[in-house]
Design a protein around this nucleic acid. Structure first.
Lengths: 204, 204
DNA sequence: ACTTTTTTTAACCAAATGGTTAAAAAAAAG
DNA sequence: CTTTTTTTTAACCATTTGGTTAAAAAAAGT
């Protein structure tokens, strides 16, 4: 098993396909045979590259999580002014989730069935550092009287909630609120509105 | 199989136990044997009352969904003034989810793997009627200049996002933002703060 | 006490599933 | 052309899993 061009291509194909299947059915619901079929290869080759279902899943999950957390850390850590930072984060979530709409459900669900998974990943990627910085930034904005009194953690939780839930709850939201409308279009234009909603709420 | 006292008790015990297991592991991840063990009965008795895994799951899911949707419909449909209604809904979600914190993940996940499930349930319970009424109420508030310009559907989606996500994302939020703090306590006092956050954002 | 219902026990089954193996065929690299 | 690597095929295996069955035991109802 050397790293030939074809070999790498196949491994990427497997990973991409596994991502789709795992995202839709979860770890327990996904079938190795199904992944193989969807990738247009056979089960033996699956095990040739990824020894077991769990190893395959771990890799898929880690990549998925990093896709969300990595750039978020960057935004949290940078030096832009608070309102601009909020806009950046909302935009970031929206961009990532438009491309990988399955991420929220996938992560939420697998973290729920095995909460230790998140512990292994959350401390990497510099998320914690960026978070501390942003928390302090919010606190200072409150003290300086730039924004209303609000618990910084609460504000961050609100930002995340407003950014992620509409993707996680897509089937329900589109059925309940946006029937006969292109929900993806709604999501696409949502980032700015969410930012406005948040800033409107905290500004003085 | 008559409806004796003991019989009913057992069926309720099964349902309650199945709820826990399904909530934690999802449909695919749950095992009938596990449910039987957790309920302190044997597998044969499980099938004696609920013929199949799917029938058992359907009942569990329906009850879970109704627990969320039923009272929501009531709040949506009533005649209180908009701001009060927002507070009622936030409070409602918080109350239900404090008691059944697994509901969001459970519903989100199962709806994701089988989106037709929601279609069968969302039209019952008068949710749609209440929703229409509240949408109209919001539109009117905008027209009357009571609140800022906002798409009514967007506002409702924001309310739901802020109310539900903190429960669905509990493992992540508590690890990321509220480490070494009792997250349940945070959730418990959140409803009012969420209402304030929303109202602050839309009021003129 | 007698009857009916509920529950247990334990063996059993068929299908599904993750995973393995070995040999052949196809493709790539040298 | 030869060698090495990748991929397929297909049979195979052990385990898990949902589900069944039948008979006995326990409990409840009368």
């Amino acid at each position: 098993m050397k790293e030939n061009k074809k070999s790498v291509e196949t491994q990427e194909l497997i990973l991409k396909t596994a991502k789709d299947i795992f995202a839709q059915k979860g770890y327990a619901g996904a079938r190795m045979q199904e992944i193989a079929d969807a990738a247009g290869i056979n089960k033996a080759l699956l095990h040739y590259y990824y020894r077991s279902k769990e190893k395959l899943f771990d890799q898929v999950f880690e990549e998925a999580f990093k896709k969300l957390a990595g750039p978020l850390a960057t935004f949290l850590a940078d030096d832009s002014e608070l309102f601009q930072k909020i806009r950046n984060i909302c935009k970031h979530y929206n961009n990532v989730l438009m491309e990988y709409p399955f991420l929220p459900n996938f992560i939420l669900n697998e973290v729920n069935t095995d909460p230790t998974r998140i512990l292994k990943l959350i401390n990497v990627e510099g998320v914690m550092l960026g978070k501390e910085k942003t928390l302090a930034q919010i606190s200072k904005a409150v003290e300086d009287g730039v924004i209303r009194e609000i618990d910084p953690r609460e504000l961050i939780l609100n930002i995340i909630s407003l950014s992620i839930f509409p993707f996680a709850g897509k089937p329900i939201a589109s059925e309940l609120l946006y029937k006969n409308v292109d929900y993806n279009k709604i999501l696409n234009t949502r980032a700015d509105k969410v930012s406005d909603f948040i800033i409107q709420s905290i500004k003085k």
